[in-house]
Design a protein around this nucleic acid. Structure first.
Lengths: 330, 330
DNA sequence: TTGTAAGCGTTATCAA
DNA sequence: TTGATAACGCTTACAA
């Protein structure tokens, strides 16, 4: 392995100068700098990042901890994080917790040992663990808020509201909610918005609680029966995967979407538009959230930059929603 | 920050002993070990990984370079890599090249500086670059073979053969192939298998080349028209995304799948089963490939363990394939 | 502008 | 079984 000493020796300068030529180009005489750079290239020198990290005290890496890299939205967050990190010259250490709330803290703590800070996506861990983790090093939350920790979240209340207004406008008076996991912070947030909107902003809208479900396609399949039995003419789902499952089951029972029941999802995953019918859903800016999280973590702004981003969501109306019983269409 | 020295001092031992107690427990007196472990816990000691890496010469990290983390199959590979790496005590540094062949080498080289070795998924870079990278450190290829580099690939010829036999058996005599990118190694491999099988193993089967396409849904949409115009009664697609796009476009033109045209995909992404109709496709074991790649990289076997894995694929017959003109059904 | 030298926090060698 | 002590490769005062 060729070290900085080797380069320095070959270029006839001290290691210090060689180091400067490489990392602080303008504090070195032009001729020296070029000589060093050239010999470095000739020798195929590659800086030892461990040594650099030890000397400078920073690793040039950030951590990304997420429940499941195979989920489209986490993949999108990862995409955003990766892109922004590269722009800022950082590397990304990734860790998949396999949806395991217990493992999550351990894994994140281990990651924290190697990086400048950690981005936690939809963390399920307790608030206490979150704070313990924050004590180990910088932490940014995505899709969750907790205490004063920096976070990137989404204005899902606005999305829920928009969806409800859409459905109400279409003539629906009874809307089912297929909820997410009990442990999901965003599920709780959605529920309270649902109640608030139904109670205050929209007349005569009834919300039917269709329970908690794992956020996967098959849960939707199961929830569809409850939805059909509930008498609701529209269903709002915790996420697109569930919504797609609901549609699938409804259709296989001969219930038409949207003619008989309207379905609204959440997330706008890539396949939402490919479904039959294309899914009406609340689009969430996952990749931008990933970018924002990196900015928060690396404090790209001025010292007192904002510690929270709340990103706007966007209701995308496609074909899984149609007129309800009180509507005039059809 | 609490260092090993602090722990050692507090426990009344030398740093050397403290280090041993933590990393080499059975070479230290039981009483000492426990004392050290306890004080380490009390002080909240966390080993500095950069220092450890510098001293031992290994970082405990592996690199994972892939074209697009949002693609379901790369996400699955990542899942497998992550899981296996954790089992083996390694961390995973991830880098998304954004499908950019030019960037790919640069990114991989940068990653290589920080890790024990790099796993390259479906690399598009030249053979020369591949070798240059291998000179920088251990490399394992996934879904590509090149020279003597360790690799994990798939027996796609068998999959292509199976698909063709299925279609032929169903009565199809003219099968279109919607190809992948010109730069994709696996596309070339598929084409040659197609020709070989059509020429030698199956009677009277005509392969229609439907061109090269980017491996995305919208390419399928575009390719569908070519497929319909070609007179082929069945279409084999480079991957599921494309196949789904083909189906979508066919359907929107009033061409029924599989009644009018059968469609076969490749990969078996999660949504293949959710499509309407569910997609017949060649299932590829992405996650196991990720695990295998880690094993290859970390040389988990004996010194002369195999350097290549070729994983079996599996034709999954669903509802996007049906009887062709020479069949007796319908 | 350049060089000397002192760390950075661990591990590992060699004696004791 | 333990303790000095020397690396590991780089950065960064501090001097020159």
């Amino acid at each position: 392995m060729v070290t900085l000493r080797d380069v320095a020796r070959a270029a006839g300068v001290s290691p210090a100068t060689a180091s400067r030529a490489l990392g602080n180009p303008d504090v070195v005489a032009v001729s020296t700098r070029e000589r060093v750079l050239r010999t470095a290239r000739e020798l195929g020198y590659r800086a030892n990042q461990a040594a650099r990290a030890l000397a400078t005290g920073n690793s040039g890496m950030i951590g990304l901890v997420l429940p499941d890299i195979e989920s489209p939205f986490f993949a999108s967050i990862a995409k955003g994080v990766d892109a922004r990190a590269r722009e800022l010259g950082s590397a990304v250490l990734i860790a998949d917790t396999e949806e395991d709330a217990a493992l999550e803290f351990e894994i994140a703590a281990r990651v924290q040992e190697r990086v400048e800070g950690v981005i936690l996506c939809s963390p399920r861990m307790s608030r206490a663990h979150l704070e313990e983790l924050a004590a180990l090093g910088p932490v940014v939350l995505v899709n969750r808020e907790a205490g004063g920790l920096p976070s990137v979240s989404f204005d899902t209340p606005a999305g829920v509201r928009e969806a409800l207004v859409l459905l109400h406008g279409l003539g629906h008076r009874s809307v089912g909610y297929v909820g997410g996991p009990r442990s999901a912070w965003s599920d709780a947030e959605r529920r309270s918005t649902l109640d608030a909107v139904a109670g205050l902003e929209v007349d005569g809208l009834d919300i039917v609680d269709l329970g908690h479900h794992r956020p996967v396609f098959s849960s939707g399949v199961a929830a569809a029966d409850a939805a059909a039995a509930s008498g609701a003419t529209a269903v709002l789902c915790y996420n697109d995967l569930v919504a797609l499952g609901v549609i699938r089951r409804l259709q296989s029972r001969g219930i038409r979407v949207p003619e008989d029941i309207s379905v609204v999802g959440f997330d706008d995953i890539p396949f939402a538009t490919l479904a039959a019918p294309p899914l009406t859903t609340v689009a969430v800016p996952w990749a931008p959230a990933g970018r924002a999280a990196v900015d928060l973590l690396l404090g790209t702004g001025r010292p007192q930059a904002p510690q929270h981003f709340r990103l706007a969501v966007d209701l995308v109306v496609r074909d899984s929603t149609g007129a309800g019983p009180a509507g005039n269409a059809e």
